[in-house]
Design a protein around this nucleic acid. Structure first.
Lengths: 308, 308
DNA sequence: TCAGCTTACGGCTCACGTAACAATA
DNA sequence: TATTGTTACGTGAGCCGTAAGCTGA
């Protein structure tokens, strides 16, 4: 067995079981990839792929497991190369961050600024996606770090670090009647049309569960992955908005009034995660440090946590 | 980079940094291994080994980390091969168990018997060692599974499964005065010479801590790694013995009297552990099952636990 | 008939082994 | 001087690419 066989295997698995596409991605010809797969299957003594005629159509049960170990083997060899790069050159390289829109827009800017001042020659990439996509990106080494609230921390192939806690705030136009209440309750919230996040993003599951447990049904008139979209529709009078506390920015959102809702919903924890077999280069470790330092300044609306 | 370079690296690291010995182990000539290392260091761009003149004398700091990832990469590729073997042949193979003397002598026999009836063609090996050695054997894939009470469960590169709980019993010659007591206390134990386990084995640390916390100092006249040695010296009248409960066997130890001491010491948990990146073949998984089933029959003296 | 995988074959790279050399205890 | 590691070089295995063959949609 050798590493090229494993990278070929992964490429084919990632390209819908198309050897041609995998070959293209690897800058090789079809036949070479085909041979790698054949040799690998011959050595292992089992079919990794399910074939319909000559065409590949999926992974066999054993193949699924094999791909898993192949990913990890490759991750480990990549780690070795990264160690080398860390020794030679401590200031060049790249940093690929996976983040949801909320993180990228409301949390990352000061971190990124501090980081790029410290490492001006490091190429920074922000990859956006849903929490589930971010987990996959981290596992498949499409990003170095993923930052979000959901889905991380559960996957066995990721190391996750708790970063900061947050809860929700209500935003509304200044003339909205709900702002006259001295105490906002879940029942009160149900009386108004609500704009908030879609399922899968920024604590939506926990949000909806809180109503369900109280046997209430909120009127969600619109949901979006993106806090900015929510704000826009609140401004347009579609209803009240319920967003993550860190997404309300006084200087830009002064036309909207906010109210803390942390007495109504469980606290959420945002985490940073990376692949278990991954060696983090010095600047990547430093980014995590800077992130933790920066979010610890958000005390007003959230509590920072230490490493798990 | 390729896998042969990594196996060469590991072989050199495991052979006291001797390229010649590593080459011998790998059935290659010195120069070939030397070249592998050179090429690897060239690609990584760093010295992995510390050299005194031409001779290798140790690992550089980066080298230490590299070796760690190399082990894991190799473990993952081995796992892939094992998956293949599982597919082809479900009844042949081998099973290498690491265990302390106590486990091998008092717990394993019925498990081994059941296992070898089920898989008569599987070669069974029992590797004995201290808990620390067993951890290393598991990490370096010298055994498939390690079974003991100490040291497992802490190491980040091992998966550990809790198996059964046990405590200690006192053994003494029938004429020993301590047997006249209705309740044995730590103070009473301190009045007599004691024979028990050495540090590092079978709960000795926890045993000694119990006395220390009570500000007592037991008279340990002899300590051994091996319950049989302890019994021999108790029989010879050197003192009372304090051993693990599962090591007292009525049929063979009828010349000694035992007393339960579980009111005096914390309970211990024996665990099974294996390397994280290791794929366990079907028969190896089955061995764990058989082990768990067998120890759950030890209820009289211990409580079985589920998977962690 | 086309898209996609496999097989056959030639060329080239690269790794192993032999052997000479260098250096350390 | 014996042991151990490096360097030089020839040979052979193995991998890539070209090209032809095969197979199902």
């Amino acid at each position: 067995m050798n590493l090229k066989q494993l990278t070929s295997l992964i490429a084919v698995a990632e390209n819908n079981f198309s050897i041609s596409h995998a070959a293209e991605q690897l800058h090789m010809v079809q036949s070479a990839v085909s041979q790698q797969i054949s040799r690998l299957e011959e050595e292992i003594g089992t079919q990794i792929f399910i074939r319909k005629g000559k065409r590949l159509s999926g992974l066999s049960p054993a193949g699924e497991e094999i791909v898993h170990y192949a990913y990890r083997a490759i991750a480990n060899t990549n780690s070795i190369l990264e160690i080398g790069r860390d020794q030679i050159n401590q200031v060049e390289g790249k940093l690929r961050i996976g983040a949801t829109h909320t993180q990228a827009q409301y949390i990352l800017p000061p971190v990124i600024k501090a980081f790029s001042q410290e490492y001006p020659n490091i190429e920074l990439q922000i990859h956006q996606g849903s929490p589930k996509q971010l987990v996959n990106k981290a596992i498949h080494d499409e990003v170095d770090l993923s930052i979000c609230t959901e889905a991380l921390g559960e996957h066995p192939d990721l190391v996750s670090i708790s970063s900061y806690r947050w809860n929700r705030v209500l935003i509304a136009r200044p003339d909205h009647p709900i702002l006259n209440l001295s105490l906002i309750t879940l029942e009160q919230l149900c009386k108004h049309p609500i704009v908030t996040y879609v399922y899968g993003f920024t604590g939506r599951e926990v949000f909806s569960d809180a109503f369900k447990q109280a046997l209430l049904k909120p009127k969600i008139v619109l949901s979006a992955a993106d806090t900015d979209v929510i704000k826009t529709y609140v401004r347009n009078g579609m209803g009240i908005g319920i967003i993550a506390s860190m997404a309300y920015k006084k200087q830009h959102d002064s036309d909207l009034v906010f109210r803390d809702l942390s007495h109504l919903f469980p606290w959420e924890t945002t985490k940073i995660a990376y692949q278990k077999d991954k060696y983090l280069r010095i600047h990547q470790q430093r980014f995590i440090e800077l992130f933790q330092l920066t979010v610890s300044d958000l005390k007003a609306v959230s509590k920072p946590l230490g490493y798990q």
